[in-house]
Computed example of a mutant assay.
Amino acid sequence: MASSFSLFFSFLLLLLAISTCCSTNPEGEALHVLRTRLHDPTNVLQSWDPTLVNPCTWFHVTCDDHNRVIRLDLGNSNISGPLGPELGSLKNLQYLELYRNNFEGKIPKELGNLKNLVSMDLYGNQLQGEIPKSFGKLKSLRFLRLNNNKLTGSIPRELASLSNLKVLDVSNNDLCGTIPIDGPFTSFPLGSFDNNSRLNGPELQGLVPYDFGC
């Protein structure tokens, strides 16, 4: 009898272990994939344990009352490496704060899937390539700071449809083409576009612009 009970108890423990390992959290998985891409010399991401059911106990991650990730704070963390499409899986994210690190490569177009995003701060990195046109889908976005990177290409016209956008900073990049003149762009100060030697527009030169080099 005792032997049967022991066998049954062991079977229950096995089921529990299987249930635990299979109760994956998509947001936790996405963040763990991001971590595997990055170089973290000061162990800022040490608490990002993929064996936990959800990432709400991790440092630099904030969740709402339903254990959904709404904020990622990794500013000034001495982290380097590429960003990946997995960030687009954080569907409830409202604040993406990755400023003043050494992130490199292109900005993933999948960030355009973050429909609840209010603030995106990617400034002060080594990001290259173009500003994704998919950012035009971020209708809740109020703050977009991409300054002090190595971004190229033109400013996507899709950004002019972001009626809630209050702050835009793309200064100190290598952008080209013309600056949109409608939507929220009517209120952005000229400093938002400083130090882009190939960027032209009525706001900058008072002339009908040409897309030199774009």
Rank of each mutant, 00 (worst) to 15 (best):
W48D: 02
E158L: 03
L114C: 07
T42P: 01
L190N: 11
I79W: 12
L7F: 04
R68Q: 14
N148S: 15
P26I: 01
G191S: 09
I181L: 11
K139T: 12
T20E: 12
R142G: 11
R71S: 15
I70G: 07
Y95F: 14
G191N: 05
T51F: 11
R198W: 05
I131Y: 03
L16A: 14
I131W: 06
L190S: 15
L151Y: 01
L15R: 00
N196G: 07
P180R: 11
K139I: 13
S3A: 14
L199H: 04
H60R: 15
K115N: 09
P202S: 11
Q94N: 09
P180A: 13
K137R: 14
Q128W: 00
D174H: 11
L72V: 13
S140Y: 04
N113W: 02
D40V: 05
N148E: 15
G105R: 04
E86I: 00
S192D: 12
L7K: 10
W58D: 07
D169H: 05
K133Q: 15
V118S: 14
K109C: 00
S4M: 07
L207C: 12
V44E: 08
D194Y: 08
S47E: 05
S163T: 15
M120P: 03
L45C: 05
L13A: 11
C176G: 05
H66E: 13
N78K: 13
C176E: 04
L34E: 02
L98S: 07
N148I: 03
S192Y: 10
G129D: 08
P184S: 09
N101C: 06
F5I: 07
K115F: 14
D121P: 02
L12T: 11
S80F: 10
V118M: 11
L204C: 07
I155L: 09
H32A: 12
T186D: 00
L72N: 09
C176R: 06
G105E: 01
N196L: 02
G81A: 10
D65E: 13
A2S: 13
I155H: 02
A30W: 11
N25K: 15
S6C: 10
D49F: 03
G81D: 03
L207Q: 14
S6R: 09
G105A: 02
L45E: 01
V208D: 10
Q126V: 02
F188Y: 01
V170T: 12
S119V: 10
R68L: 13
Q128D: 01
Q205E: 13
N92W: 11
S140A: 15
E97F: 10
H66R: 15
T178G: 11
L114R: 10
F103E: 04
P209Y: 00
N125R: 01
L146G: 10
F8K: 08
C214Q: 08
L87R: 06
T51H: 14
T178D: 00
D182E: 07
L74E: 02
F11H: 11
N43W: 11
S4H: 06
L122K: 02
L16I: 13
E104I: 00
L93S: 07
E27P: 08
P132K: 06
T42Q: 13
C22V: 03
F212P: 05
L45V: 07
I179W: 03
